[in-house]
Structure formats: structure tokens, C-alpha cells
Design a protein around this nucleic acid. Structure first.
Lengths: 170, 170
DNA sequence: CAAGATTGACCCATCAATCTTG
DNA sequence: CAAGATTGATGGGTCAATCTTG
């Protein structure tokens, strides 16, 4: 017994200091793989078939249902990216003719942007193809499986929110 | 009836040309949100607590169980990023002292890299914290839920693979 | 010629600093 | 001083071109 006890103690100690969480780690890697595979394929197809990048597509999507246009700050908040990032994206989308800048009424600090007519037409084609691609990505799942996955990912999202909120209090 | 039929026809036509796939689209957005939230939080914590970026952490992780080192090409394939990208990452990790370059035996074209001793020690601390963070992210799910999610994501991954394979044949 | 690595052009992302306006 | 936008430094990603070596 003398030669066994130290090993058990070491394992117990390790378990207290740093418990094993292989199941969660494997789940995270699988979730990440699915998201990365799909996103890479979307980028590839947007580039190949429409000559556009995903961030540009995302910005156009934000703009599509804002007929009056939006300020750059609003785009930045909705896309959850930095202010400076939006400035550069907007520069390039103005350059390509998809959107146009105009001054905000009532606030001389703010720039607003909106889709041009060709920009809107171009985006509609892309959005339609995009929706078809996504449907194809999940074509191997039944409607019931899609439903269950939605539910579990909803629970995951809530769990993530809590964990991220906990961060700032430790 | 005369005023109803045209509407039905229009809907039928739209359905044929471009079926509606809202459930899949919502599922994709939710999956993407989960992955993005978790990844952003991991980047934030790696930066705040260890002063390291996620790509650097990923490269160190690839290297950890290759005591003999790896070629840059092998790292590139495993991380699924381009060759040129790896060159830059390696430059910065050599600069910070985490890894070292050496010439491959038997092939004078190839560069190899391996962890330095301090690099390995640093990575071990990060990896342990990383595993704890992930466990915390999924703390709101039961073991059974984790199991079901793993299964559904496995099916999703398979569906994605098929869809991506289908791409090149259309 | 093909494969390993590097380089340069470009895009996307962050942050910190700055300028203008409320 | 706050907030909206821009700029510059830095890091990470792609691709195409190049150089060396198998």
C-alpha cells in the first residue's frame, strides 16, 4: 500500500487543482469545426461567384432593410466590429458602387450610408444564393433534428452568456 | 376567386424558383453566434491573462505533442491556414522565444520548428486555463445535453462535408 | 516539373490617438 | 467633456509570384 497511496494522492490533488473536462473540450472543438467549415465555404462561394468578401456581404445585409440609411456607428454596433473597421469597409463599398455616403440631417458629426440601386440588386442575388447554400449545408438533417439542435444551441448561448458575465466578477 | 388565384400563383412560382429555408438560416445564425461568442471570449482572456493571441496559442498546441518538431508545411496543413501565414506566425513566436527553428535532416528545402523549454512551460499554463474556461462555458448544460449536442453536431459535420463535396460537381 | 518556404499586395480586425461637433 | 468618425500601428488571413531544392 505504501507504493500506491502516493499515486492516488497525486491524482486526487491534480483533480482538485484542475478537474478534467474532456467532454466539454471535445464539444467545443466540434462546434468550432462546424462553424469554421461552413464559414470558410461561404467565403469561398461569395468570392468565386460574386467577387465579394463576407464582411462586405454582412455590411450590405445590415443596410438592406434600412431604406433611410444608417450611421456608421449604428453599422458598427450591429456588426459588432470596431468603428475604424467600418470606415475602411465603407470606403471600399463606396468605391465599388454598392453604397453611398451622405451627411446625417441634424448631426454634423455623423456620416450616413445607404445602398445604391445597383448595390441593392447585387445584394439580392447574393442573399438568395446564400440562403440556398445554408439550406444545402443542413440538408442531411431532418426537420426534427434541426429543431432539437436549435434548442440545444439556445441553451448553449445562455450558458455562454452567464460564463462571460461571470468573468468580470472574478 | 379571381383576386386570390394570382397571389397563389405568385407564391407557388416563388417557391419553385427559390424555396424558403428560414429554419436552416436561423439555425446557422445561432450556431455562428455561439462559436463567435466563445471564440471572442477566448481571444480576450488569452490576451488579458497571457498576452498571447489565439493563432499563436493554436500553433503552440500543434507543436506540443511533436517532440521531434514539425515542418512549417505540416503546421500549415494541420492548422488549415496558408503557408505564408505560418511563416509570419513562426517569425513572431521565434522572436518571443516560444519556439525555435532548425534545419530538417534529409531535406534542405524544409524548415522545422519545436517548442523551447520556456515556450512549453508557458503553453502548459495557458492550456490548463483554456480547458477550465471551456468547461465554464458549457456549465449550464447537463452531461446528457452535452452528449446529445455532440451527436447532433456530428451529424451536422457530416452534412456539411457532403454539401461541400457537392459544390465542385455543379 | 513539383514541393517547401518566403515575399509582397491586399483585405479585415483591433486599439490608441486625434479631430470635429454636440 | 461625450460621441461620431478617421487615421496609423500592428497582427492575422488570403493569393500569386518567386527562389531553392528534390
Amino acid at each position: 500500500m505504501d507504493d500506491v497511496a502516493p499515486v492516488l494522492d497525486a491524482e486526487t490533488k491534480a483533480l482538485e487543482a484542475h478537474a478534467d473536462h474532456k467532454a466539454e473540450l471535445r464539444l467545443w472543438l466540434r462546434l468550432l469545426t462546424c462553424a469554421t467549415m461552413a464559414e470558410a465555404e461561404i467565403r469561398r462561394r461569395l468570392r468565386e461567384r460574386f467577387g465579394v468578401t463576407l464582411p462586405r456581404f454582412d455590411l450590405l445585409a445590415q443596410l438592406e432593410r434600412a431604406d433611410e440609411g444608417m450611421t456608421l456607428g449604428e453599422v458598427s454596433r450591429r456588426m459588432m466590429v470596431s468603428n475604424g473597421n467600418v470606415t475602411g469597409l465603407v470606403d471600399r463599398l463606396v468605391e465599388s458602387g454598392h453604397i453611398e455616403r451622405f451627411a446625417a440631417p441634424n448631426d454634423r458629426r455623423a456620416q450616413m450610408i445607404r445602398l445604391t440601386d445597383p448595390g441593392r440588386a447585387d445584394f439580392r442575388r447574393m442573399a438568395e444564393a446564400h440562403e440556398d447554400w445554408i439550406a444545402d449545408f443542413f440538408a442531411g438533417l431532418s426537420a426534427a433534428e434541426i429543431e432539437r439542435l436549435m434548442g440545444l444551441l439556445g441553451r448553449t448561448k445562455a450558458s455562454l452568456r452567464s460564463a462571460i458575465a461571470r468573468r468580470n466578477t472574478k
